[in-house]
């Protein structure tokens, strides 16, 4: 990523943080709100491939950890794994369409919440694994599906990739 790309990505991450803290936190369904930070990691993996997904996920997670009381580094670990996994899966797709991005964002965001809780449980935060986990995964998945398209455009802009929908799949971009 170029210096301009890094600057743009920093701007996107800060913008997402502001959006999450000051705005999306108030949009709650059964006490659960959208998680645009994990969505950034997911989308970075989708449009940038596994290594960019992992790196962006790690940075986004570390920034998120600054505002949480959960073990420092837990979000960084979760998000980098998620960004990497999404990049790997998306890399095998030759053609993408808007609905595939939306479905991937929903499924990956839900999976990320579950992974976050499981890793939290491993490091002693057993209260994170509860029957609410399915509700959290479901609401975050649905909400992030709605936000997937604008998030993808923002990350594409940051990574200096074409924002056109008529594009080849991740494999084509990387070779």
């Amino acid at each position: 990523m170029t210096a301009v790309g890094r600057a743009r990505m920093s701007l996107v991450i800060v913008g997402a943080l502001v959006l999450q803290l000051a705005f999306l936190g108030w949009f709650r369904v059964q006490g659960v709100h959208p998680d645009v930070m994990v969505l950034l990691a997911v989308v970075a993996g989708m449009v940038g491939g596994p290594d960019r997904g992992a790196i962006v996920g790690f940075v986004v997670g570390l920034v998120t950890d600054l505002f949480l009381q959960t073990p420092f580094g837990l979000s960084a670990l979760t998000f980098c794994l998620v960004g990497y996994a999404v990049g790997l899966v998306q890399g095998g797709v030759l053609r993408t369409s808007w609905w595939l991005s939306v479905a991937t964002a929903a499924a990956a965001s839900a999976a990320a919440e579950i992974l976050y809780a499981l890793l939290g449980g491993i490091v002693g935060q057993s209260q994170m694994i509860s029957d609410r986990l399915w509700l959290i995964a479901g609401v975050v998945g649905a909400a992030n599906a709605v936000l997937a398209v604008p998030a993808e455009r923002a990350v594409r802009w940051a990574m200096e990739l074409s924002t056109s929908r008529a594009r080849v799949g991740a494999v084509g971009r990387w070779r």
Partner: peptide, 18 residues
């Protein structure tokens, strides 16, 4: 190979921080 190396470094960094 490079991608796996990047992931390994990031996971180890996160685990060290934790």
């Amino acid at each position: 190979s490079r991608t796996r190396y990047v992931l390994l470094v990031l996971v180890l960094t996160a685990a060290t921080i934790m």
